[in-house]
Design a binder for these strands. Structure first.
Length: 649
RNA sequence: GCCGGGGUAGCUCAGGGGUAGAGCGCUUCCUUGGUAAGGAAGAGGUCACGAGUUCAAUUCUCGUCCUCGGCUCCA
C-alpha cells in the first residue's frame, strides 16, 4: 500500500501502481470525468501512469493551466497524426503548447504545400481520429533504440533532438498508428478532444535560428466541448473589432503613407489630441516627482554613438549614417535618447548634493526594424519614447527605483490597466562574460530591483539571462486584443553609460564618484502605448480616468457602436433625447455622420453599481466631489450636451 | 530579412484577357412623429507602381513598393 496526499493534506491509502485516474474515481465519478492530468510530487504526469510510491498529488482539470497544456499538447499529437495520414512522409519538429492552443512545426514532403483548404480537411481528420478513442500510451526507450527508430523513419529533426537527450530520460507516446518522441504528459486517450480549429499556417525556422531550415508551422486550438470553441471564435471576432489599426483608421487617429515610408506613423488631429493628453498627464506626474523636461536634437554625431556603444549594436542594422558636405563628417538619426542626456549631465560638475538628477524628454527615435516585424503602432521605425534618465548615487538607487514604480502604478491605475505582467530580468549567472560592470555592482543593482519590487507589493516573474548587457531591468507587459504581449513600461539600471561617458559627481568625501543611471519609460513609447490603450479600452466604454485627471475618450465613429458603448452609462433613451434636443434646434435629426464627427466624450470612472458612490475629479479642477452614479450620469449627460453644442457652434 | 496570404470607389469587399461592380458612406432634392427610417437623381476608380507576353492586360508573367499572419528581433 502507498499513501497519496491530496492538496488539502488529506491522505488516502492505495495499492502501489494506482493511477491519477484511479484516485479521481475514488474521489468522485464527476471529477474523474473532468480530470485531465495529475501532478505527482510536483511533476505533471499522465493520468494513467502508475504511481509506485507515497506521493503528494494534485488533479488538474480544464480550468487549470496544467490541464489545458496537457490537453493541447495531446491535440498537437493528434494533429500530427492527422497530418501524417494526410501528407505521408511528413517530418515532425516540435509541437508545444502556446498561450491559447498549440502548434506543430512540420517539414512537408518535397513539393507539397499546405493551404487553408487542407486545414479544414485535417480538422475533420483529427475529429475522426479522436472518435476512434485511441489510447495514448507512454513508453520508455533507450537512446540507442530511439535513434534507430527515427533513423529508419528518416526523421532528421527528431534525430537531432534525441541526440541531445540523456539516455534513460527518453519517452515515446503512441496513439493509433502514430508514435512521437515526447516528454508528455498526455491525455489518457484522444476522445477528450471534441472541438478543433486550426487557426494559422506560418513559416518558422527550425529551432528558431534563421540559418536553419524553414519549417511549416501550423497553429491550432482545441476544446473539450464544441460550445467552448464557438465561444472562443466569437471572442476572436470581437477582438478583431478592437484592433487598434482598425479603430485608428475609423476614428482617424493615425495613418501611414506609402510615400512617407513603412513603419513611420503619422498622427492625425484626433490622435494627436489623444496623445497630447497622455503626454500632459505624464508631464504633470513627473513634475511632482521632481523631473525636469529637457530637449535634444534628433540626430547626433556618429562619435556620440561610438562612445555610447550603440553604434556597435545599431550601426550596421540601422538607418545609415547621414553624410554632410564636409568630408568625414557623419551623423546618425538617434536610436535612443540616453547619449544626449549623458552629455547634458556632463555639462557641468555635479555634487552629490545635486543628485538625483532626473531628466525627462519625449524623445523621438528611429530604428530600422526588420520589415516583417512592423505592426500597426506597436512596432514602428520612428517612435517617441516617454524617456527619462535618472542619475543617482548608489545609496539612492532603490528609492529612485521605487519612485519610478510609483509613477507606473499611477498611470496603470489611471488608465485601468489591471491585467499586466511585471518581469524582472537578471543576468545569466553562468555567463558573466556577457555583462559589463563589476559583479558587486550587479549584485547591488539586482538586489535593489528585487527589493524595490517586493516593497511595492509588485507580483513579478523573474527571468535569468534576460537582462540588458549593461544592467538588470524591470518590464511591464500588457496584452493586446488578440492576446499578444507587448512590453510597455520599462525601468533599467545602467552602470555602463556613466562609465563610457565618464560621468562623475563629487562626493561628500571630496572625491570623484560615478553616478548610477536609471533608464525608464512608463509608457514605453507613445505609439505602442496608444495602440494598447485603444485595444484595452475599446468596446468597454467608458474609458477610464480615475485618480485626478480626466483623459479624453475617443468615441467610436458609428452611431450604433457609440450608443451601445455608452449604454453602460446612459441608457439609449438618454442618447436619443440628446439627439432629439439637437434635432429641434436644427430642425431635423442629427445624422450618424454628423454625430461621429464629435471627436471625444469625456467620461470618468467605471460603473459597478447603480448606487455606488464615487469620487470624481477633473483635470485642472481637482476634486469635483463625491456623488452617486445617477448624479454622475447627469454630469456626463451635461458633458455630452456641451460637447455637442460646442461642436456645432 | 525569411515563409505564406493580400493590394479593385472614402470604408468593407465581389469580379475577372475585350478598359469595371455591390453594400455602406458622400452630394442634391423629396418624403416622413413609427425616423438609428424611406424615395429619386448624382459625384467618385489611370483596378498599388513599373516592365513583359498579347490584336487587346485591371485580369497572365516578372520586378518594385505597401500591407496582413507567423519566425527572428524589440519600446
Amino acid at each position: 500500500m502507498i499513501t497519496i496526499t491530496l492538496p488539502d493534506k488529506s491522505q488516502r491509502q492505495f495499492e502501489s501502481g494506482v493511477t491519477g485516474m484511479d484516485v479521481a474515481q475514488a474521489i468522485s465519478p464527476r471529477l474523474a470525468k473532468e480530470v485531465l492530468a495529475v501532478s505527482v510530487n510536483g511533476a505533471v504526469w499522465d493520468l494513467n501512469r502508475p504511481i509506485l510510491e507515497d506521493a503528494e498529488i494534485k488533479l488538474f482539470k480544464w480550468e487549470d493551466r496544467e490541464g489545458q497544456e496537457t490537453f493541447w499538447h495531446s491535440s498537437a499529437h493528434l494533429m500530427a497524426e492527422a497530418i501524417e495520414t494526410y501528407f505521408p512522409g511528413t517530418k515532425f519538429g516540435i509541437g508545444p503548447t502556446v498561450d491559447t492552443g498549440f502548434y506543430y512545426d512540420i517539414d512537408l514532403p518535397e513539393g507539397k504545400q499546405i493551404t487553408e483548404k487542407d486545414l479544414e480537411k485535417i480538422e475533420k481528420l483529427m475529429l475522426e481520429l479522436s472518435r476512434q478513442k485511441n489510447n495514448i500510451v507512454r513508453s520508455e526507450i533507450s537512446k540507442a533504440d530511439a535513434l534507430k527508430m527515427f533513423e529508419t523513419k528518416g526523421d532528421a529533426l527528431k534525430l537531432e533532438l534525441i541526440s541531445e537527450l540523456e539516455d534513460g530520460t527518453i519517452t515515446l507516446y503512441n496513439q493509433g498508428n502514430f508514435t512521437d518522441l515526447c516528454r508528455g504528459p498526455h491525455l489518457p486517450n484522444t476522445e477528450y478532444i471534441k472541438a478543433v480549429k486550426l487557426t494559422a499556417i506560418a513559416g518558422a525556422y527550425w529551432r528558431g535560428n534563421e540559418k536553419n531550415k524553414m519549417l511549416t508551422r501550423i497553429y491550432g486550438v482545441t476544446f473539450p466541448k464544441q460550445k467552448m470553441l464557438e465561444e472562443y471564435l466569437i471572442l476572436m471576432e470581437e477582438a478583431k473589432k478592437r484592433d487598434h489599426r482598425k479603430i485608428g483608421k475609423e476614428m482617424e487617429l493615425f495613418t501611414f503613407s506609402q510615400k512617407v515610408g513603412q513603419g513611420l506613423p503619422m498622427w492625425l488631429p484626433k490622435g494627436t489630441m489623444l496623445r497630447m493628453q497622455l503626454e500632459d498627464f505624464l508631464k504633470k506626474v513627473q513634475k511632482k516627482f521632481g523631473y525636469e523636461q529637457v530637449m535634444t536634437p534628433h540626430i547626433g554625431d556618429v562619435n556620440l554613438y561610438k562612445t555610447s556603444g550603440h553604434y556597435a549594436k545599431y550601426g550596421a542594422d540601422s538607418f545609415q549614417v547621414i553624410k554632410t558636405p564636409q568630408e568625414g563628417e557623419e551623423y546618425m538619426l538617434k536610436p535612443m535618447n540616453c547619449p544626449h542626456h549623458c552629455e547634458l549631465y556632463a555639462f557641468k560638475p555635479r555634487s552629490y548634493k545635486d543628485l538625483p538628477i532626473r531628466m525627462a524628454e519625449f524623445g523621438t527615435v528611429y530604428r530600422y526594424e526588420q520589415s516583417g516585424e512592423l505592426h500597426g503602432l506597436t512596432r514602428v521605425r520612428g517612435f517617441t519614447q516617454d524617456d527619462a534618465h535618472i542619475y543617482c548615487r548608489p545609496d539612492q538607487l532603490k528609492d529612485e527605483f521605487k519612485k519610478v514604480i510609483d509613477i507606473i502604478f499611477i498611470i496603470f491605475k489611471a488608465l485601468d490597466f489591471k491585467d499586466y505582467t511585471a518581469q524582472i530580468s537578471l543576468r545569466d549567472p553562468n555567463k558573466p562574460e556577457k555583462y559589463i560592470g563589476s559583479p558587486e555592482n550587479w549584485d547591488k543593482a539586482e538586489r535593489a530591483i528585487i527589493e524595490a519590487a517586493e516593497e511595492k507589493g509588485l507580483i513579478t516573474v523573474t527571468e535569468l539571462g534576460e537582462a540588458a548587457f549593461y544592467g538588470p531591468k524591470l518590464d511591464f507587459m500588457i496584452k493586446d486584443a488578440l492576446g499578444r504581449k507587448w512590453q510597455l513600461g520599462t525601468i533599467q539600471v545602467d552602470y555602463n553609460l556613466p562609465e563610457r561617458f565618464e560621468l562623475e559627481y563629487i562626493g561628500a568625501d571630496d572625491k570623484r564618484h560615478r553616478p548610477i543611471m536609471i533608464h525608464r519609460a512608463p509608457f514605453g513609447s507613445m505609439e505602442r502605448f496608444v495602440a494598447v490603450l485603444i485595444e484595452h479600452t475599446a468596446g468597454k466604454f467608458p474609458l477610464w480616468l480615475t485618480p485626478e485627471q480626466v483623459v479624453v475618450l475617443p468615441i467610436s465613429e458609428k452611431y450604433n457602436e457609440y450608443a451601445k458603448g455608452v449604454s453602460d452609462f446612459l441608457n439609449n433613451s438618454d442618447i436619443r433625447s440628446l439627439v432629439d434636443d439637437r434635432n429641434e434646434k436644427i430642425g431635423r435629426k442629427i445624422r450618424d455622420n454628423e454625430l461621429k464627427r464629435i471627436p471625444y466624450l469625456l467620461v470618468v470612472g467605471e460603473k459597478e453599481a447603480e448606487t455606488q458612490t464615487i469620487s470624481v475629479r477633473r483635470q485642472g479642477q481637482g476634486d469635483i466631489g463625491t456623488m452617486r452614479w445617477s448624479e454622475f450620469e447627469q454630469l456626463v449627460q451635461t458633458e455630452v450636451r456641451e460637447q455637442l453644442s460646442s461642436f456645432y457652434n
